[in-house]
Design a protein around this nucleic acid. Structure first.
Length: 491
RNA sequence: GGCUCGUUCGUCUAGUGGUUAGGACGCCGGAUUUUCAUUCCGGUAACAGGAGUUCGAUUCUCCUACGAGCUACCA
């Protein structure tokens, strides 16, 4: 299955700057990047910007920046960065040579006529295959026809009834009969070359050895192989990676996904994912290292173990929950200071309102954030969990009462009084979660209470919540003075 | 409709001509915890169907079913 190829590896990354940075695009970029790294190869980054209507520079920026955020710095890593529009003249030149060589021909069948034929094929329940009546006309006739100004399209003269087969690095051998292809269009009348051919010309020009792209291009491959043949050069190795599907098993698209589910790289940024996690999750969508069951890998580690053989054939359904899990794993792997730094950076751009408050409490964050990271999976969920560390909750006497736990208003009051003196007695320097816990247990025994009867009012007075981080941790983090202030607020 | 590709727990996947078909997410239960979460332990659940090859097929072959992609003078 391995095609012997002694040339140094050259892959390419050819995005169209016509939209946002989609998960699928990012994954294709990742796989190309990893493959190149693994084989000490080169990367050609090519903007396929020939669609002038839809190509936008802001998309270019977003795509490049988004990839860079993920850790894939193509500006730095690419041996060549080009725009397809720069080679338009060259495309036209190649087309002219193909015409001279009799590989392509002008076809004067009009779009309207083609529509009729398509309709017919549809009704006869056969595939629409078009063999142009102009394919066998002699050159001189066609030349004069062209000069007449009649509109035409350039078509490749496809040999009939030929088996076109190739070995896909991921799927093995696949073959198609050229009879199902017909003479397909490769350029417009004005000589502007279409994707199918332009792509091949560029790949050739740039010495691409491996084309790693999405499965949605699989049916283009036989046609492109024919283009390579017309050019008279050896084609590269093709590898088609499986599609990413949504919950309905359709090609993943931002539009069809449930609200809150991130699909575009900017979505992940806004929700407070860390790039390592997104990249990690992306790598495992349709790929598996096989030699281990570990699933947490950094980019450098992936560079080591990545192998096209580990890429799956079947399309993979996208699971946002698992992405969130990857994020939590990464969040928990950071040191206090790193977590704080990353979180603060994130709030500055994505949560500016709270950023100011957080900045004011910055010194507390290293202690608070690791606790928060146990509960929240993304930065966007952090604030809600850490706000009570920073600001005193509202006093609410009634919420202290809990019939189920047998906490009466009077009991709550005495618990908080006990707590106040308990905390007061602990020395500032010894105000740790452990000590507070120790003393609390003594008080619980002394008052002959159940743990919950004591700790529930404790938790609520500090956090204003029934569910929160542990009261000992909160107290230790906010400190003696603030803890007492919150408890005494109930007097 | 035509062409092409694909099919192992709900999801991502490992795996082999003979395995108790393994791991992860999710879910459920238990332990720890005052709670939620974390952590630890345990559980749930899969080889699409049929035929063939074979002593034996989840694994090899064929057929069917289902799914998806493509089907532009877009990329």
């Amino acid at each position: 299955m391995n095609t012997v190829n002694t040339r140094p590896v050259v892959v390419r990354m050819p995005p169209s700057p016509t939209g946002h940075l989609h998960l699928g695009t990012a994954r294709t970029a990742l796989f190309n990047y990893l493959f190149a790294k693994k084989h000490q190869g080169e990367i050609v980054f090519r903007w396929e910007d020939t669609d002038k209507e839809r190509s936008k520079t802001e998309h270019e920026t977003e795509i490049l920046e988004g990839l860079k955020w993920l850790g894939l710095d193509f500006e730095k890593e690419s041996s060549l960065m080009v725009r397809q529009t720069e080679s338009i003249d060259h495309h036209t030149e190649v087309l002219r040579k193909l015409w001279e060589a009799g590989k392509v021909f002008p076809c004067f069948t009009t779009p309207a006529e083609l529509d009729v034929l398509r309709e017919e094929a549809q009704q006869n329940k056969t595939g629409f295959v078009f063999w142009s009546p102009y394919r066998e006309k002699d050159k001189a006739t066609l030349e004069t026809e062209m000069k007449s100004g009649r509109p035409f399209a350039w078509r490749l003269k496809v040999e009939q009834n030929q088996i076109i087969s190739y070995i896909d690095e991921i799927r093995g051998e696949t073959s198609v009969n050229s009879s199902t292809l017909g003479d397909f269009v490769v350029a417009r009348s004005d000589g502007s070359v279409l994707y199918l051919l332009a792509n091949v010309i560029d790949d050739h020009e740039q010495g691409i050895t491996h084309v790693i792209r999405g499965e949605d291009h699989i049916s283009n491959t036989p046609k492109q192989l024919l283009c390579w043949k017309a050019l008279g050069v050896e084609p590269p190795i093709y590898a088609h990676i499986p599609l990413v599907l949504d919950a309905q098993k359709r090609k993943l698209s931002k539009r069809r996904v449930e609200p809150g589910v991130a699909v575009l790289v900017p979505d992940f940024q806004a929700q407070g994912f860390v790039p390592e996690a997104v990249l990690n999750g992306l790598a495992f969508l349709g790929w598996n290292p096989k030699i281990t069951t570990d699933e947490i890998f950094s980019l450098p580690q992936l560079e080591e173990i990545f192998d096209l053989a580990g890429v799956n054939k079947a399309a993979a359904q996208y699971d946002f929950e698992k992405m969130r899990w990857y994020n939590q794993q990464w969040l928990q792997s950071y040191s206090e200071t790193e977590l704080t730094e990353r979180f603060m950076d994130w709030t500055k751009t994505f949560d500016a309102d709270n950023s100011i408050l957080l900045e004011a409490h910055k010194s507390k964050l290293p202690a608070v954030l690791p606790v928060v990271a146990q509960k929240a999976k993304t930065f966007a969920e952090f604030y809600d969990e850490l706000v009570y560390f920073l600001e005193a909750p509202k006093v609410d006497h009634e919420a202290l009462v809990n019939e189920k736990m047998k906490i009466s208003s009077a009991l709550a009051k005495s618990v908080l009084e006990e707590l106040a003196s308990l905390l007061q007695d602990i020395d500032e320097s010894d105000f740790t979660a452990e000590t507070i816990k120790e003393k609390s247990i003594e008080s619980i025994a002394k008052m002959e209470l159940k743990n919950g009867q004591f700790l529930s009012p404790f938790r609520f007075a500090l956090s204003g919540r029934e569910k929160s981080a542990g009261p000992f941790e909160i107290a230790a983090i906010i400190g003696k003075e603030e803890s007492l202030r919150r408890i005494n607020a109930y007097h």
